[in-house]
Every structure is written in C-alpha cells, then in structure tokens.
Design a protein around this nucleic acid. Sequence first.
DNA 1: TTGCTCCTCACGTCACGTGAGGTGGC
DNA 2: TTGCTCCTCACGTCACGTGAGGTGGC
Lengths: 277, 277
Amino acid sequence: VFRIGEFSRLARVSCRLLRYYDEIGLLRPARIDDTGYRYYGAEQLSQLNRILVLKELGFSLEEIAKILARELSAGELRAMLLVRKSDLVRALDAEAERLRHVEARIAQIDAEGELSSDDVVLRAEPETRILSVRRTIASFAAARELIAELGAAVHGRLPASALGALMCVAHAEEFELDRIDLEAGFVLVAEPRAPVLLSNGEPLTARSLPAVERMAACVRVGLPEHAHLITARISRFVASNGYRLAGPSREVFLERPRLDRMESAIVEMQFPVEKAV
Amino acid sequence: VFRIGEFSRLARVSCRLLRYYDEIGLLRPARIDDTGYRYYGAEQLSQLNRILVLKELGFSLEEIAKILARELSAGELRAMLLVRKSDLVRALDAEAERLRHVEARIAQIDAEGELSSDDVVLRAEPETRILSVRRTIASFAAARELIAELGAAVHGRLPASALGALMCVAHAEEFELDRIDLEAGFVLVAEPRAPVLLSNGEPLTARSLPAVERMAACVRVGLPEHAHLITARISRFVASNGYRLAGPSREVFLERPRLDRMESAIVEMQFPVEKAV
DNA sequence: TTGCTCCTCACGTCACGTGAGGTGGC
DNA sequence: TTGCTCCTCACGTCACGTGAGGTGGC
C-alpha cells in the first residue's frame, strides 16, 4: 500500500493529478485516514492505467467516468471512437497544412530577410445567393457604369435590408483589359419577390455562388486599377504555400461604394484556391 | 467606418473576440465614442487579418503583439518558426499514432463485441542505473533463490535510500522454461561506494539500462508463474496497435517482495516496443 | 414606442500546475 | 528537533463563449 508520493512516482503522474481525480471521483484511494492522508494499492494502479489509456484515446474525464461505470454500451463507445477518429483525421490534415504554412514562412524569411506581415487570410466561404448581371465589358469605366446601373435598378425596388454587399465576379480565365467577363450584383439576404430590371429592361438574375472551402482573401482600399497589387500579394501567398487558383475570383465591396469616390472604396478580393497536391 | 457588429461580420470573427483584442491592446478600434461604442475602419480589417494569419501559424496573442510591435528580429522570428515547425512535426506523429490506437479499439469492438478496459499503458522510460547479476537459471524456484541472495547481499551494505525497486530483466530471445537468461538487481538511486558481493563472492555489477521511447507496461499482482496472462494481454496490445517487441522485457517489483508471500507481489511488466512500420 | 445593437461585468471552460500556509510521522 | 511528506485552499492557465442586466440610436 502506497502513500500518494510513492504512488505518483510508480504511475509517473503528479500528486496534483491524483488529488484531482480523487476530488472528481474518478479514482478514489483505497483508504483515507483521519489526518486526510491518501493510501493507494496495486488495484488503484491498474485503475489509473485504464484511465490513462482512455485519456490517450481522447476521451474527456467525464466520458472516462461513464465508461468505467459501464454506463455506455459497446455501440455508443464505437460511435464515440468513430467521431474521435474523424476528428483526428481532420486534425491531422489541418496540422499538415499548418506545417506547410510555417515552412513557407521560414522560406520567406530565408529568401527576403524578413517576415512580411501579410494580411492574406484563408477561410471557408459558405454558398451565397446573389442578384446579378453578367457582361463582357471593355474598360474599368464600363464596369463603373454597370455598377451605377445596378444601384439604380435596385434602388427602391427592394427593401434595403434584403440586400447585402455589392460584389463582382471575374469569370475570365485569362485577364484581358479590353474584354473583361464580369458579373456584378448584390449579395441577397432575402429573395426578391418581383423581378428587378436594369434601365434597358434586362432582368437581374438571382443565383447561388458555390461554397468555397479555401478562399484566399485580402482587403484593399482604393481604385480597382490598383487591384493588381493585391492580386500579386495573393498570388505569392498561393504559390508559396502550395496552393493553386481554383475558380473565378470575387471582389466584395465592404462599404456601398460612392462612384465619385472610388479611391476610398473598401474591397475584399477573394480567390478560391485548392491544394496543388 | 463600421460598428462592431458589422465589422465582426465582415471579418468573420465574434464581437467577443474583437472586444477581447481591444481589452488586451492587440487591436484597438479606430475610435471609441463617449457611449463606449467601438468604431472600426478598413485599416483595422487589415490589421485583424494580419493577427489571424499569425494566430494560424501558431503564435500566442502575446507573441503576435510583439511581432506587430516589431520587437522581434527576423532571426528571432525564424527561430520561433523553427520551434513551431518541430512541435508540429512531433504533434503530427503523435496524432497519427493516436489515430492508429483509436482504429485498433474500433477493430477490437468489431471483433469482440466490447471495448476491453485494458490497463496496458505506453510511456517513455528514461535510462536507469541498476545493480545486478545475470545468470541462466533453470526454474522459477531458482529465480526466487537468486532474489533472496540479492536481498541478503545488499542488506546493510548500502543505505536503504540508495536502492530503488527490485527488478528483473529477461534477456532470452526465446523463452525456455528450463534455461532462463535472467538479470536481477536493484534500481540505483545513488552509486554504491564499495563493491557489493553475493554470498559466493560474485560481485554485483552497476550498469545502465537504456532509455526506452515506447514501453508497454502493465501491473500484475501475483506469482511470476501467472505472468503469461499479462504477457498475453500486452502481446495483444502490441499486435493490434501496429507495434512489435524491441528488446528485453523487464519486471519491476513495485513493493519489496516477501519471498514467503510472492502470490501478493505487485509487479509491473514492461516490454519495449517500436512501430512495426 | 419597439426592435436592434451596443455596453460592461462576471462566470465558465478543461485538466490540472503552482505556490501559500500549515500539519503529521519518523 | 529536523527534514520530509502530506494536507487544503485558492489562484492561474489561454482565448475567448455565454449569459445577465442595462443603455443608445433610429
């Protein structure tokens, strides 16, 4: 029979852990004398090892208590293990990706002498409903006109609360300055009840932008003409972290833009990416 | 300029996070009015994204604050990233191993209909100094005699505080009941100052048992003749989790055994294992 | 006036680690 | 008596989540 100090040395755990497990009722000592000293036997060592094994498998102490009390069926245990397994697989993937990011940053310091404090974030985007038109246009000025038209079409036709941010989707595979395949529209918070028409009678289309698992995003302030700076930054991020572009890019106007002050427009540029294997 | 709610939606973080970052001085809003409302601008969005990027890389908020304040050189950053990288590699390994353990348990439930609440633990053992003799013996009774001899040799020759547990090391590759290659001795807490001799004049040897990265261990109470039950349990653990034996096994007597009551001896059986690739 | 948004506490999280201050046993 | 071991609080951890209870702005 062992006092807590020796028992903790045998089991290679801390005294605090043993007192804690006693406190929560997970592992009670065989005996506690009237001075409060805890005494453990070999039986407790087996019990403790069982607990440590289950802890290693990823169960919480609360779950372990239930398992030891045989309150869980084999089926329930199996289900818990399956959940744990898929969690582990996901965690492994995420950790491997993080490792690549860390390696990319080390390479960056080695190549450039410093860690550029980038603001390119990677995140998941859910599916989004938008109300839009798609056109091939010849200049940034034409894009600006299209946006103005959109604003006019929507004005008063839809409750302000039904509309989210203004956004553009760049569909062209190759970017040509005089032939931009552009979709422009508004994020929809609620579906429109009636068709919305442009001044030329052309209707806006409500459709879904697909969900994107990995969206590389970066905020810029300023004219669309300056977008290539951000594009370059994102490209560098994408390349150095082992991704590649995977679909049309988006520009989300975080504030409703004022056409006379586009130089202070706040835009998030978004590029869908995927692992380049 | 955005209030906290809209800003949190744009950045896809919680208001609580923004208030917390304000509280710890990591990201201050552009302006706070006299009612306490926080106002954020596009500039803050970039800052926040930088923070999120660094958080993703695994830095703590405290470290991020230092990085943003440019209090760390590129060299220091590189060093931190290297540490982070090796942590990640280790974590990946450990997670993969945990995944195999979980899979083994699922397979166990599928095969046996229940989760045996095993008490086989896996742990790292440090190098250990022991004072021992090695002999080929013909029976368990001979082993018992050897242990008795050891106890007599040590009695009074070494301070009790210098001696740890009694232990045996089973060196034989193949286990033959009548030719057991057995090493028996005591764990050394302090080196002996003078040679310690057996009754026949043979000296005990002080030597180091190598450190073992993965030691599968299980406690048993009872006669050494019953050890095969535990051995079988450990073998099953080893096989079903994708390990294989890697070196001589050990028996550690957690309590100094009384030769007349070996049936209540408390012994930890230890088997070094390695990944079976 | 009614929602909606914002505010500041303040507790909870999970499994202990780490003292502080004091007592028991040889 | 002196160490050594044990005891019970009680706070700290890390980065927020989650109410409670109340106010500001259109």
